[in-house]
Design a protein around this nucleic acid. Sequence first.
DNA 1: TCCTGCTATGCAACTTGTTGCATAGACAAG
DNA 2: CTTGTCTATGCAACAAGTTGCATAGCAGGA
Lengths: 185, 185
Amino acid sequence: MALEHAILVSLLEKPGSGYELARRFERSIGYFWTATHQQIYRVLKRMEADGRLDVREVPQRSRPDKKEYSVSALGQACLSEWLHEPIQPESVRHDLAVKIRGAAFDDPAALIQEVERHRRLHGDRLAHYLAGERRDFGASDASAAPDAGRELQHAVLRGGIAYERMMLAWLDDVLATLHRLAPGL
Amino acid sequence: MALEHAILVSLLEKPGSGYELARRFERSIGYFWTATHQQIYRVLKRMEADGRLDVREVPQRSRPDKKEYSVSALGQACLSEWLHEPIQPESVRHDLAVKIRGAAFDDPAALIQEVERHRRLHGDRLAHYLAGERRDFGASDASAAPDAGRELQHAVLRGGIAYERMMLAWLDDVLATLHRLAPGL
DNA sequence: TCCTGCTATGCAACTTGTTGCATAGACAAG
DNA sequence: CTTGTCTATGCAACAAGTTGCATAGCAGGA
């Protein structure tokens, strides 16, 4: 279960509560993994019971208390073990591609709006990633200490950016194809 | 459940058995959707019970009999309805990206082999897609009748090709980063 | 005071997806 | 005549993910 490993990595980068993790999964970790808060809370509970995480109750003012999780030695060891074993290349699930092939049995022109909507969403994501890159990796003067974590985070972010650029180009390609098939629009 | 819709599209393109569908999900449909035969048989059974598919027992010589599924009118209607409602952009699950960020807490150099392995796998997939493109869309002389289904299948395949090319470029980027972080190798 | 919104955590029910196993006919190789 | 491979279908148990709902503190505005 790779969600566990994603959580371990995130908590190693910075300890935090389930709520904070859920927000990270909407932001930077969301570049390559999605999870809802229900999933996260459930997994955190299990990992804590298994001794892979430590918890600390943190009282807060002007907001409810929280439980701050951090990675235990056992958790570190689990992550290390996983890092050293080979994994399957990720499996893809592109609903939109199903729709595009399905459009041949319906009205291709009706798909244009949907594809345009997705194009906007991917454009927004790209803008968001680029803003994050400027903010977090912009003033990367060579005088800064070479930080492996930072470098690797940047490499992953570049992957997200490349993915969104590829999607935008492909969606333009799809739109051109749809317009060609429905010239009246 | 989009697997149902992927199956409807595939059976509209060409009726077939569960076994044949499973093979298609390793080939062309596998460009954008994965499913095992267990999943497929289970869903086929349910869809047939719901009246969205028709079955026909096909006796065969020199191999076991099979059940050939095809889409019923109700199935067509279900697909059409789905095509007209908006869907969420796909969610991503990149185990490799988790590993890359996790490498900061372990030995980044140990990841090089794994990334190279993935690079080879994506290279193989790209070669496979390109061969499929030459085979199925190569001699596309303008005299051929404009076939919407064919055009849309080609557009989806171009998406798969763009994805693999993007991955290869990104994995090279990641490898360069890893080598920079571990100069002794 | 009530309503909304944000932080914060969680349960229960359900749907999907994965893993391991089982069966069986036909054919080819040894 | 046994063993392996390919076609072909399926069950059962389990793991993972989704959806809907519930609670609760605190703050700010109508």
